[in-house]
Every structure is written in structure tokens, then in C-alpha cells.
Design a protein around this nucleic acid. Structure first.
Lengths: 405, 405
DNA sequence: AGTAATAAGTCAAGTCAGTTGACTTAATAA
DNA sequence: TTATTAAGTCAACTGACTTGACTTATTACT
């Protein structure tokens, strides 16, 4: 009878929470609108001029915003727009892939300041962690040469790696770096760097990058279709990355292509770079792979085009499915592949299948190309701590959350 | 140059917003945990005892909570648990279907107090609205006989009808009540009732009902697979119904069953009651349809079982897809069909396909049967205004939102 | 029994972020 | 030159949560 099950409840809030929320709202508004005066901010956030003034004073004092030249626009006192100060905060992003790891440092507005990469022993996590920690150490050293404040203003470390996470054993291990899955990576990195660590899968990181500086900037409902070694979807729902119950939302690589297909063919077998490499008989661990694929794409290699056309068929279906299931404002195609290949894929996907997304009142394209920079996953990884610290959607109101800034 | 594009920003907040949030947090905690003392609430919400005490005093004065008998449990002063007072708020829910409309009144805890239904002229919206307004009038009259306060405490009208919404013309009109799609239904109902009106598709309403009083109660990531005349998924993501960019998220009936299937067969053609009626050569407008199908299911009619087995194959695939894409904690099967048929379908869907949902640490079943009451859609419709008014996730913090209670 | 320990809940003063309304400043329009 | 308009500040006010001491009611221990 005396069950001690925990009480479930949302946190309450107080003035501090409200204040933290309002600070984030200001920063978010400046991020979305470029530069705004105090009066603009007051109107946009529905706060009073006075409240905004106080908050902006504080943000300026804390080095998050700076005033620009006053602008005269018609009658009345000229307004002084404020913009974000990029060096107000920094974060480090880490992409861990099968054969390679990349680390970047970004600032408050999502500009990549430092980047470096290293090879990774595929089946030796503890050796790998040493490599990674060295990489991060180097990034931090370079960053502190750019800004003396950088260490103080480092808000966290974001990690992106292929999912899914937390499954004991599932599917075809070749795709998944089994040794890494079991290793307590986040704890080790947190201990080794002294930073707060967040984890996303690679498609989610792509979506986070698109939201910070790409096609999903200011878009509240967008899905990022990421064609990497595997294939996944990064979900921006209600302006926030959706992770699902166990952090594995969007892992569409495992989607079965047909209810009747007894063979169990999944999307990843057809539309992923792994399948391309297999089709072209390329070695995935080859260091010059990227350039080789780029060259084939530029030359419109017939074998590559054959794969593109086959994959495009499945990708078209994926877009249709995504539109049907999520009803996003736009779908963004991103890829770990060279831009030339991504463009071929995008072309081959048109015309898109008819779907509920073909509305008369569209403003955004149904499908568009996202960031094609191979560093975008690391950028997305780095964007996550920035969002966590400064995005009002991350519920700064709730009590007992660290309040950034 | 002088572009007057609107400034995009989240609303700020103030003490009032914080207070509104905290009141909702209390109500939500009581809804989830049954009854809690002030001390319990303080611990669960991270507010101080004093703050909770003040809020509870106010909620009691306003008729939202009542104290129970003090309970002695070990040392210390006995605690006085509080529970929600069901008659603290009411809402009306409306299900509009092809041949039929149902209306219910529910209270704060989601109990259906009054229900009634009427036939609807399928292609005459203005005539239909008269029927609906009459139905709502009757519901309100009966409700005010149950509680004298009911009119004052009516928080809104929720409407559920088959989607998708807002498309000029799409697909097979037979499924969609075209005349209704164009009619300004919500405005007309708002004007005719004086209530705030919300809209959901029927699968979303099912999910809302499950969240309020069913299998998704207290579950933050759940997908409700609704097999009705069509088929759809209601999405509870982060504890909240997800609607998508245009309110059409979860309309999986249009999902193409295979990338290569040039015939364009969609899920709805195979796994929906419409397909069952076609298979059995039943007339969908027949008034005794429900009983007839119930009888066939109870008798395990071979023709019906044949359809069940075929549909189950597609539904199994749908569950796999939902698990892959959303990573929910559980999938809930609901249906407009009689419980006997729903149980046959559920049985036939087992064993489920292997997926990322087959985790070692599961606590909830991968697939479970939801509310089988045919009134559940109307209940879900009615639950929406209640959630909007009392759920802390509906961002009561933001300024310029009506604060319920 | 009598006392200590424990926990629920209240009292009353304090705090602080946002509000209010009048005011100042600086520009353009008439 | 003056009226108008808009940005931004000043200073007093408000109110929801916090703080820390206190009261109340029960069980556990000696």
C-alpha cells in the first residue's frame, strides 16, 4: 500500500525564472531579427520599454549585446539598435564518425572560429577518447588566442555521432560502431573537459545547424533529411529539436520500405552513402574518398548517376513520408557527401510526389538544399549547447535549471 | 529598403505569467498524482511551502481544488491532501463525422457528464451548423442542471473532424467531406456559441483523450494510431499534442506503402474501416453499421478475419514506422470500430516487427489498446480546451495569453 | 508518562523584476 | 518657429515568491 513512487510534476517558477526567460527572449529576438532597438524589442516581446531597457543594460554590461549607430527614421528620437556580440559565448562541437572525428569552436551567432580533425581508431574507445580530448584541448587553446574571455564564456560541449543510442544489440553492427555504443563516452568527456556535454545523432546535429545558421533559421517546423553513411532525419518541431522518448527520433534509416516486402529492406540499404560506396566498390575508410566521390559527381559518372537515380526514388518517397507524418513547413536535404553529389541527388528527386505539402499557401519550398559543408555536423553539435543556454524554448522559466548568461 | 517585415520574437513574461504558470503546475501535478499535500507539492514543483500554500488557498477559494481528510503517516503533523474539484471547469467537445455528429460535456478531470448525437446532412454545412448549434445548446442546458456554475466555468469548445485541413483539393474527395472543408466552421461556431473554439483532426482528438484519461496519461512521448473511417496518428510529443506546420501532422493515411509501388497505394486504402466496409460490402451510411460489425467480430466472421489479417500486416508496418520515426514510449491502438474488432486487430498485429523500440529498459508495452468507447473522439475534442486552459506546457508564462482560472 | 524528534503548515518581513506614468531628448512635419 | 512623434529614462509602486522563525500535531524513544 505504501508505494513510494515519485511524484510527477512540472517545476514551478519565480521572478528569477521569468527574468532568465526574458533575457533569452531578447537574445533570441536579436538572433532572428539581426538588430533591434529597445523600443522594437519592447513591442516584439510585449514587455514594457523600461523592462527591456533594464535587461539590455544588463546584457550589454555582461557582454552579450552591443549598440550600433543610432538611426534616424522619421519623426522622434533616433533609435539605437542593438545586435548580438558574437564573442558573448562559445561552444565546442564534436563529430564522432567511424573513421574520423572533427571538432569546432563556434561563437554565440554560430560562426565557426576554429576547426580541427583527427583519425579515430574505430574499435578502441579509450584510445579514441584520448585523441578527442587532445583535439578539444587544441581547440580551446586556439580559441583562447582569439578571445581572452573564451574559457569563461564556454557554455558547453556538444557531441554528434551516429545513432541509434541505447540499444544493446540491434541490426547490422557494421553500421554502428558497437564498441563506442557501450563506452561511457559522455561521462568521460565531461570529466575530461570540465564542460557540460550534450549528445545528438548526426541527423539531429544537421538540423540544429540548419536552425542556427541555415535554412531552418526562424522556421518552427522543419525536417532535415541527412544522407550520410547512414540516413536519418533531424526534426525541428515547434522550433526545437525533437529527440523522442529515448533520443532516437528520426532514425528513418531503419524504416521498412514496404509492409509486404518480406525481405525487410530498409531505407538505409538503398539511400545512404554506404550503399553508394558499395555500389561503386569504394572503400569507406579510404582517406581520399570525399575527393574521389566529388570527382565522380562532377564528371557525372554513369555508375554514380545510376545510384543517384535509384536512391532518389527512395528519397522522394522519404520526403513524401516526412511531409505526411510531420507536416513541416519545409524539408531540408543535407548530406555528408560533396555538394556536387548532393545537387545531383536533389535534382534527381524532382518532381516530388504529390502530398499534403502541396498547399496553395506555401511560402517555403517543399524541398531545399541545406548546408553542404562537411563540417556542418560538428557545427550542429556545437550549436546545441548554445541553444540550451540561450534559446527561450529550452524553458529557462523552470526552477533549478542553470541559467545561462 | 524600408521593409516593414514584422519582428519575430517570443513573448516575454512577468510575475503574472509566472503565477499563471505555477497555478497550472499545481493543477497538473494534482491531475497526475491524484491528491497531494501542500508539502508534497512544494517538493515536487520546487517552490517554497509558503508559495504553494498561497496558491492552493487561492485555488481552493476559486473552486479548483478541495482538501481531503488529513492523513497521519509517521512523525510530524498530519498532511492534508488536496485533489482537483471536477466541477472546477467544463468544456464541450464535438465530433463531426461524415454522417453523424456527437457532442459531449466534460469536467476538469475529463469525466463525460453529458452526451448527445445527431445525424448530419453530409453536404450541407449551413444546415449542419444549425444541427450542431442545437446539439450544443442542449448539452449546455443539461450541463447547467448538473452544475449551476457550468456556464461561468465553460472554458471552450473543441472540435474534432477528419483531416487534412486547408487543402484546396486533394486526393479522393469521397474521404473528405469537401463542402465542410471550405465552410468557415470555426468562426461560425465561435459566433454561435460565444466560446473559444479549437480544432483537431480525429486521430489527434483520440490522442488528446488518451492523454487526459487513457493510456497516455502522464506519458510524454506517445503515438495514438487511430483506425477510423480513415487512418491517422495522434502525436503526443514532449507531453503535448503536436500539430505540425499546418495542423496536419500525423495524417499517415496518405503514406505511400512503397517507394517502388507505382500504383500509389496508400495506407488508408488497406487499413481503415472504409476498406473494411468495402471488403464486406457494407454501406457506410447504414445506421446499424456499428452493431453489425460488432456482431461479425464477435462471431469471427471469416471475411472479416481475412480483412483483419491483411490490415494487420499494414498496421504492423505502421507501428514499425512510427517507432522508427518518433521513438515514442508507447504506441496506442484506437479505433472507431467496436471493441471486439479492435481486439482482433490488436491480436493479429502480434508479433510486432523488430524495431528500435525493442529496448531492454522498456517499462510500457510497445503497443497497447486505447479507449474503445466510440465517444472517445468527442471526449478528446473536449479535452483540448481543458488542456489549453490548465496544462503548464501550453506556455502560460507568455504575456498576453488569457490566463485560465 | 514525559520528552525528543520530525514533519506540515503559518506568519510577517524582505526582495526583486517588471509596471506605471510622468518626464526628457531628439528628430521631422507643418 | 512650433507642433508632433517616437525613443528612451526616472522614480515610485506592485505583487509573487523567498526567508527564517514559529506553531501545531503526530510518532518514537527513554
Amino acid at each position: 500500500m505504501n508505494d513510494i513512487r515519485p511524484i510527477r510534476a512540472t517545476s514551478g517558477t519565480n521572478q528569477e525564472g521569468a527574468s532568465a526567460h526574458n533575457r533569452r527572449v531578447m537574445i533570441d529576438a536579436l538572433r532572428l531579427n539581426g538588430a533591434l532597438s529597445r523600443a522594437d524589442l519592447a513591442r516584439a516581446t510585449q514587455l514594457t520599454k523600461q523592462a527591456v531597457s533594464n535587461i539590455i543594460d544588463e546584457l550589454e554590461r555582461d557582454g552579450f549585446v552591443v549598440p550600433l549607430e543610432a538611426v534616424r527614421k522619421g519623426r522622434g528620437q533616433p533609435s539605437t539598435p542593438y545586435r548580438l556580440l558574437p564573442e558573448g559565448a562559445f561552444a565546442i562541437g564534436l563529430q564522432i564518425d567511424r573513421h574520423l572525428t572533427r571538432a569546432v569552436a563556434v561563437d554565440l551567432v554560430g560562426t565557426v572560429l576554429v576547426r580541427s580533425e583527427a583519425n579515430l581508431p574505430p574499435d578502441d574507445p579509450s584510445g579514441g577518447v584520448r585523441v578527442i580530448l587532445g583535439l578539444i584541448e587544441g581547440i580551446r587553446a586556439k580559441l583562447s588566442r582569439i578571445s581572452a574571455q573564451s574559457e569563461k564564456r564556454l557554455v558547453g560541449l556538444g557531441v554528434a555521432m551516429p545513432g541509434p543510442f541505447g540499444l544493446e544489440e540491434f541490426g547490422d553492427n557494421k553500421w554502428m560502431m558497437p564498441a563506442w555504443q557501450k563506452f561511457p563516452l559522455l561521462e568521460t568527456l565531461a570529466a575530461g573537459t570540465g564542460l557540460e556535454v550534450g549528445l545528438q545523432n548526426d541527423a539531429a546535429a544537421c538540423a540544429t545547424a540548419e536552425r542556427m545558421v541555415g535554412a531552418a533559421h526562424g522556421v518552427d517546423h522543419a525536417v532535415c533529411l541527412y544522407v550520410g553513411y547512414g540516413i536519418g532525419a533531424g526534426l525541428i518541431l515547434n522550433g526545437e529539436l525533437y529527440r523522442g522518448g529515448n533520443g532516437n527520433a528520426g532514425e528513418i534509416g531503419m524504416a521498412l520500405l514496404s509492409p509486404r516486402g518480406a525481405d525487410g529492406t530498409v531505407l538505409e540499404h538503398r539511400a545512404s552513402l554506404a550503399s553508394l560506396y558499395q555500389h561503386l566498390e569504394l572503400d569507406p575508410s579510404d582517406a581520399g574518398l570525399y575527393e574521389r566521390v566529388d570527382a565522380l559527381a562532377m564528371a557525372r559518372d554513369p555508375e554514380l548517376l545510376a545510384w543517384v537515380n535509384a536512391a532518389a526514388q527512395d528519397l522522394r518517397w522519404s520526403v513524401h513520408l516526412i511531409e505526411t507524418v510531420f507536416d513541416p513547413q519545409t524539408v531540408i536535404l543535407t548530406s555528408g557527401a560533396p555538394e556536387a553529389l548532393a545537387r545531383l541527388i536533389l535534382q534527381a528527386m524532382h518532381p516530388l510526389l504529390q502530398s499534403i505539402a502541396a498547399r496553395p499557401d506555401r511560402t517555403l519550398p517543399r524541398l531545399q538544399l541545406g548546408i553542404t559543408d562537411p563540417w556542418s555536423i560538428a557545427l550542429g553539435a556545437a550549436s546545441e549547447p548554445i541553444s540550451r543556454a540561450f534559446d527561450p524554448r529550452f524553458s529557462a522559466i523552470l526552477k533549478s535549471r542553470a541559467i545561462a548568461g
